[in-house]
Write a protein that binds this DNA or RNA. Sequence first.
DNA 1: CTGTTAGCGCCTTCAA
DNA 2: TTGAAGGCGCTAACAG
Lengths: 342, 342
Amino acid sequence: MPATIRDVARVAGVGLGTVSRVINNSPQVSDPTRRRVLEAIEALDFHPSPIARRLSLGKTLTIAAIAPFFTRPATVERLRGVELTIAGTEYDLIVFSVESPERRDATLREVTRSQRVDGALVISLPPRDGELETLQASPVPVVLIDVNNPEMEGFSRVVVNDFEGGRRATQHLLALGHRRVGYISDPFDEPFLYTASRMRFQGYQQALQEAGIEPAEVWHQHGEHGRYEAERLAIALLSLQNAPTAIFAASDTQAIGVMEAARKMGLNVPKDLSVVGYDDIELAEYMGLTTVRQPLFESGAEGVRLLLQAIADRSAPPRTVRLQTEVIPRRTTAQPRDGDAP
Amino acid sequence: MPATIRDVARVAGVGLGTVSRVINNSPQVSDPTRRRVLEAIEALDFHPSPIARRLSLGKTLTIAAIAPFFTRPATVERLRGVELTIAGTEYDLIVFSVESPERRDATLREVTRSQRVDGALVISLPPRDGELETLQASPVPVVLIDVNNPEMEGFSRVVVNDFEGGRRATQHLLALGHRRVGYISDPFDEPFLYTASRMRFQGYQQALQEAGIEPAEVWHQHGEHGRYEAERLAIALLSLQNAPTAIFAASDTQAIGVMEAARKMGLNVPKDLSVVGYDDIELAEYMGLTTVRQPLFESGAEGVRLLLQAIADRSAPPRTVRLQTEVIPRRTTAQPRDGDAP
DNA sequence: CTGTTAGCGCCTTCAA
DNA sequence: TTGAAGGCGCTAACAG
């Protein structure tokens, strides 16, 4: 049986309130008394029960992270930022990996109930119909990481400047001399979806227009997220007459599909085709993929900070932290083989 | 303020003991009473406080997973198995990502203290000096996943049959006609380290000997785990006169280093060099890497089951679950270019 | 400064 | 079958 605060009090010959004060570093304990208590604690190898503490404090000292753990490698890096940041606090982190819509709803509802956790981090999960209400009604603070939908203003969020990211990626290609640049992404016409693809697209358009190029509609291909679908889309794109000499993919995973398409079509990357991804997942470095890096680890860390603040001050207005992107040039981008003069 | 059991009792017009019985599905409640209580619960949107429940029960209803989250991609897949299996139970999962030796020790000690969690899963962390004692003295049950050291017998564990895995990988190469097969791994001469590499090596040796081949000492190169070190080792190996025509690497990460070495040396894989990895991380599929798959997800799931059993019955003897491996042939292995006749 | 007391919300006897 | 009471270990308010 582990020692309790009462045992310590008895051994130290003090009341148990005093022991509590010592544990919580209350200044109002005399030095000699404190020493006696400390000795007793040491002697008994006493550690306060976190659960009793929580019940008494009326706090769970726990925060939840809800994320699609494994569908996107980037999420893991975000979680790492979350975990390491939380490790320095008195909070525990409990994680929920949501992979199915049912679990997603259930988890969200359970977590946003009070008594369960003191706050929740929702990572890379664009809200679906009805969830917005769940979140807004949540008695526990929620911070969104990598959820960039306009509907989500009003929540504290950590987002990346996707418009700027798309613009920078495209500018990188333009600077190399490309004039026909394709864009492959998830679809973005549904109201409640991941809007990153759309923002990146707008940045892409903007960059082209700034360079005096009117983006052709066929240059934009979209389909379900994933390597194979992206491969299919790239083949379509590259089969056009006057096909793009460069493709910007809305994620590294999709960029990999693009490269696979090039391989199958006998196109050399980067000589025949330049490819830029987005995310800078670990795989990207190995493959030498030029990509747009977003501060993944930092996004998790920042999310924790926002959440802790929100917990400390419930009435504080929501804040948005917007992180910047950076193009990482590697081996998949180069000048186009043929000049592309008008 | 969320409703408490007392509110429910008042609304239902019963004593609060009865409400508790209903919550816990005690059979000794009459149907009409149960119905009234259920209605009150519904009306008040009552959810029992997990914390109060834990304090009263004297259980934390929480289990900890300690793992080097991100240094090995395989770990993430194991965690996924852990998370999904736990999700079906009343337990919470709290995770600790240990990346430094200090945190490692601190976490282990904290977690193995009672009051903190009901059980702990230690994943892919070979014990270091002194930790064995910490673990053995642990009042909370501990299950080891992917910790195959002989010193760890006595603990419940989920391990993979690494000897057999090494043997199968090598047999695959032998069946293709290779006679000179190299092996690249972490070092395995320290007493307290990850023994998987050694077991795989023994399987490798066994397979060669069964084929009437005496493995040359120089065929085995070892160094710190990682892609770049493996690349260095592979270059050394391939620079030998009478260099191996195939290399078996103790992990996919290292196999990638080997392939990078081949690329730099102008060797075609698999025509000039066959490569086999180990783990079947996601990257392996993309790269077409022939590898030895171990049931990662399943190892996590199985670990949870073992732990839950151990929690339910503290006096049960430790059990070892040994999972099997499987060679996944892909595009990095083929017949050697030149016959290798004696 | 320090001891005592009253909860925190729930579970579990013990009686009735 | 049900109500009431005691206790889980700790914190905080109140006396002294």
